[in-house]
């Protein structure tokens, strides 16, 4: 085994796709927030959310094909990180609901928060599992 292999296994671009998905989610969030809470639904944000979801699914498919992979450690990190990020996303959702954000915008923001709360724990869990023995 080479020194380079010891540092990092050659793996499919799961991390890169995950970060790209996060970039799309946050950009969509900025677009929605920039227009104000009472604005109409913004199609660029909808497209970015769809791209974000597609990138996340692609990352998941690539990850599922990695052999061998430390799934036990992945889910160990994922479940706790998801709990933490659900609390964080829940706080922001609470603010949007309390302020009576219009239905379509609220749905958009909720989907963005769901994407956020799925992407970040997945990135954290993958970053740990990739360096673990099975």
């Amino acid at each position: 085994m080479t020194a380079a292999h010891d540092v990092e296994r050659r793996l499919p671009p799961v991390m890169e796709l995950g970060v790209a998905s996060l970039v799309c989610t946050l950009t969509a969030g900025v677009i929605v927030a920039a227009r104000g809470p009472k604005a109409d639904l913004l199609w660029p944000a909808v497209v970015l959310l769809a791209v974000s979801a597609a990138l996340l699914v692609a990352a998941g498919v690539l990850m599922a094909r990695i052999r061998p992979f430390a799934w036990r450690q992945f889910f160990q990190v994922w479940k706790w990180a998801t709990l933490a990020y659900v609390v964080i996303a829940g706080m922001l959702e609470y603010v949007f609901v309390k302020d009576e954000t219009p239905g379509r915008i609220l749905a958009m923001l909720t989907l963005l928060l769901v994407a956020f709360a799925v992407t970040v724990p997945s990135l954290l869990a993958f970053s740990v599992a990739r360096f673990q023995e099975r």
């Binding site: 996060l22 900025v30 927030a33 970040v120 993958f126 970053s127 740990v128 990739r130």
Partner: peptide, 22 residues
Amino acid sequence: SYVVVAVMAIVALGVLEPANLA
């Protein structure tokens, strides 16, 4: 300020925090 927060979030959540945890 939204853009600044988004950039910091990408660096923190996409780069730093995964590295810290690993």
